[in-house]
Design a protein around this nucleic acid. Structure first.
Length: 505
RNA sequence: GGUUUCGUGGCCGAGUGGUUAGGCAGGGCUCUGCAAAAGCUCCCACAGCGGUUCGACCCCGCUCGAAACCUCCA
């Protein structure tokens, strides 16, 4: 994919790192101009944490960038509201059911509650809503059909009301482990004793459909009795339904590579005989003091915590755009280490970028340029723009892009201070810089101005001046302030015990 | 134990076989009633040891160190 309308500079084709082949390759959509992206979404039984924010934000940028390139993107991000097993001691219990019992409410209530919570914080991060946001519970029929299909083909077997994928049989034709690089023999040696192991032919087999225990809250009828879908099934069923048997990009966290995505490939190849995904993209983990953040490790910070500052690991609160900027400042395949210092630095850098954004919108090239062109400066600015786009073309390197934006900020500020020097660069260069700066920040990186919400404080300060002027009988000032309030449809009220403001009725 | 990744300046974080990443912090200068902002500028690097090369932070090997995955997890 090439950049549209970029006459200046040579910008190479878009490259993406494909986890499947472990190399950067040219991105060529299967059916241009259409692109299908499937991203593993949240399991809605808990509040979203920083680790959930990273894929949401990064793949949002992927989507925005591909759209910028002129592609028509269908972006699917699922909501997992059933199915995934809980940790070791829970003996195959459904996460959401477990949480429901804990909170003594309907599972669906949990699901709705946390889905809304998820939307709230993700919206604040300015992540565009997916084109389609399917839920696992809404696709039980499709999942049962998929299980049946794999059974019919003979790559699964029924055992005591559950259905398992026959990894050994699949392996005779396909390469189980092609994505994660796992070797089955090694897996067998290291696989731990888990519940349900006895029912399996082979410890590496995984459940497509799981029989529900009597106390299990979420359950559906199926040809194999009451139960619930296996842990990896929903993504295969829903991605196939909405993006087809073979689609362009499947994204998710690195930790989902095995077993989740490996199993998705196996399920899809078993059922349809073709590879489901052309480009697998995995974002790296967020760490805290060099250690992975995990639900089970108890060191996780929710996104809400970040916004409110209410977490003992946080020295203060950080705005949504600060968090978004922080995430994009690192390349998605690097681990991102969290710290207060890093967040604070990100906040300052973000504000600097936004200040320049407000400035650049007001800058204009003179109608009658009279200065001599400063070729060196002109070339430098073109170079920043080129490098920025090259960075994005090179596996979505947002870190490079942001670095170049910072370089452009200096130029913008210089032109702001000395507007008469704007015509020392060519008009084309100026317009390119201006439009690319805005497009990159707002449309591609999805960063937006965060208006301060303390207008009350501003009004108070003005009212103080008003009262002071009145005291001194400086009525010219008094009238001026009153007029400016009035211009904004506000009125000043002189009260016996002070001044106040109100909306003009 | 197996698989994989990584080790960059006070902190965060890109990148490359020979040329400035960038941000934050710190020093200096300009501007300035004070302060801030902004501009200019300086400082601080590529874990260690070998090898390949005219030349390596970047390639290869070893050592040390860290992390992730192998089990639900973004």
């Amino acid at each position: 994919m090439r950049i549209p309308h970029q006459a200046e500079g040579f910008i190479p084709a878009l490259k993406v790192y494909n986890t499947l082949t472990r190399e950067k390759v040219d991105f060529e959509p299967i059916n241009p101009p259409f692109v299908g992206i499937y991203l593993c979404g949240p399991t809605v039984y808990n509040l979203a944490h920083i680790g959930n924010a990273r894929p949401a934000v990064f793949f949002d940028v992927v989507r925005r960038y591909l759209t910028y390139l002129g592609l028509k993107v269908r972006f699917v991000r699922n909501i997992t509201d059933v199915g995934h097993l809980t940790g070791d001691s829970d003996e195959g219990e459904d996460k959401i059911s477990k949480q429901a019992k804990l909170e003594q409410i309907e599972p669906m209530e949990i699901v709705n509650f946390y889905t809304q919570k998820y939307h709230q914080v993700i919206d604040k991060l300015n992540v565009l809503r997916p084109s389609i946001e399917p839920t696992a519970t809404g696709h039980i029929v499709e999942q049962i059909e998929l299980v049946q299909k794999i059974l019919d083909i003979g790559l699964a077997y029924v055992s005591d009301g559950s259905v398992y994928f026959d990894v050994n049989k699949y392996r005779m034709k396909e390469n189980y482990g092609e994505l994660s690089g796992r070797i089955l023999e090694e897996l067998l040696e290291t696989t731990r004793e888990l519940e349900g192991q006895k029912e399996k032919k082979n410890s590496a087999d995984f459940a497509l459909w799981k029989k529900a225990n009597p106390e299990h809250l979420m359950r559906w009828n199926s040809p194999w009795g009451e139960g619930f879908p296996g842990w990896h099934l929903e993504c295969t069923a829903m991605s196939t339904k909405y993006l087809g048997k073979s689609f362009d990009i499947h994204g998710g966290g690195l930790d989902l590579m095995f077993p989740h995505h490996e199993c998705e490939i196996a399920q899809a190849k078993a059922a349809y005989g073709e590879a489901p995904v052309k480009y697998w993209m995995h974002n790296n983990m967020v760490t805290i003091n060099g250690t992975k953040m995990g639900k089970s490790l108890g060191n996780f910070i929710t996104i809400e915590d970040l916004f409110s500052g209410k977490n003992e690991l946080l020295e203060r609160s950080y705005s949504p755009m600060t968090v978004r900027f922080f995430i994009l400042q690192a390349h998605y395949r690097s681990t991102l280490d969290f710290s207060n210092d890093a967040l604070l630095a990100a906040q300052k850098a973000y504000k600097r970028l936004i200040n320049a954004l407000m400035i650049v919108k007001k800058l204009a090239y003179p109608l009658h340029p009279k200065s001599e062109i400063d070729e060196q400066n002109d070339e430098q600015i073109q170079g920043f723009c080129d490098t920025m786009l090259k960075g994005m073309q090179d596996d979505f390197n947002t870190a490079i892009a942001i670095g170049q934006l910072s370089n452009i900020v200096k130029k913008i500020n210089s032109f702001y201070i000395n507007p008469e020097t704007i015509d020392t660069i060519k008009q084309g260069t100026f317009e390119r810089m201006k439009s690319l700066y805005q497009t990159m920040i707002e449309d591609i990186l999805g960063l937006e101005e965060e208006k301060s919400d303390n207008q009350e404080a501003f009004l108070r300060a003005l009212l103080d001046l008003y009262a002071e002027a009145k005291e001194k009988k400086e009525y010219a000032t008094v009238d001026k302030i009153r007029a400016s309030f009035k211009n904004n449809n506000l009125i000043i009220k002189d009260l016996k015990n002070g001044v106040d403001w109100a909306y003009q009725e």
